[in-house]
Amino acid sequence: MAIFAQFFGYLLGLIFNLVKDYGVAIIIFTLITKLILLPLTFKQLKSSKEMAAIQPKIKEIQDKYKGNQEKIQQLTMELYKEHNYNPLSGCLPILIQMPIIIGLFTALRQPELYVFSGNPELLVSATQDAFLWVPNLALPDLIGNVLPNGPEWLIALPGLLPITSAALTYFQMSTMNTAPAAEGAANTQMKVMQTVFPVMILFWGKSLSAGLILYWTIGNLFQIGQQYIMNRQVKGDA
């Protein structure tokens, strides 16, 4: 993972040297990395759409041959072949993206090692320059950044960036639910994740750097726009 962290850290440092603003550099960096990953993301979303389209037929096979697992598997594979669908096509892009995403997070989590290595003065200058309401992107964004005189319990809560990121994560995950015919258990699991993951993002906002949360927030905005465009294309094709 260090190879990916070094590459993306170098890229972020390069952007910062051009714009001289760490927050703006993270935004540009996020957009560039999302564009790099776009072909894999497109393939993953396309696979999800294809699976949603054939899910009702799979359900019919499962209901008709309930208890006959061998027959279900045989007919399901035939259905995949008929629709030219590879069940691994949805997993492969995720597996390929994982080391890249971990590398990205590592670079943002440890900018002193991967972005500003050997230049501590530039690190301090970059991370401690205020960005919007956040005074230091190397530290967590807490409510205290906008309500410094509030009670102690209040100013220690996650700030506006984690709140925004959690809300966008919830919305983005809800737009990904494209398989209404999925089985009850799978549907329930999706709904649970749709609630739990944004709460986790909010909780992490108390400890993760504001720069990392900024990356996640801009990434979610990009994905929401991307899914909107793809959904319009699918409707147009239909």
Rank of each mutant, 00 (worst) to 15 (best):
T106D: 13
R232P: 02
L38T: 03
N68R: 15
I26L: 11
A210N: 06
F16Y: 15
G144T: 11
P158D: 08
S174P: 12
A5R: 12
I32Q: 04
P148N: 09
A185D: 06
A179Y: 04
K191N: 15
N68F: 12
T195H: 13
Q44W: 08
E121H: 05
S48R: 09
N220R: 09
I15A: 04
K66W: 13
A210V: 07
F42S: 07
G219K: 10
T30L: 12
L75H: 10
I15Y: 06
S209P: 07
I94P: 01
Q62C: 01
E183H: 07
Q226E: 06
L95W: 01
T41Y: 01
F116R: 01
P158S: 10
F116Y: 09
L31E: 11
T127Y: 05
P151E: 06
N68V: 10
W133P: 11
T30C: 12
I155G: 13
G211P: 00
Y85G: 07
P93L: 03
G23N: 00
G236D: 06
N17V: 09
A181L: 07
E78I: 05
L104C: 00
S207N: 08
P99C: 04
Q226F: 10
M190H: 14
S174G: 12
D129Y: 02
L122G: 09
I201K: 02
A182S: 03
I96G: 02
T164M: 08
A166F: 11
A53Y: 06
V19K: 06
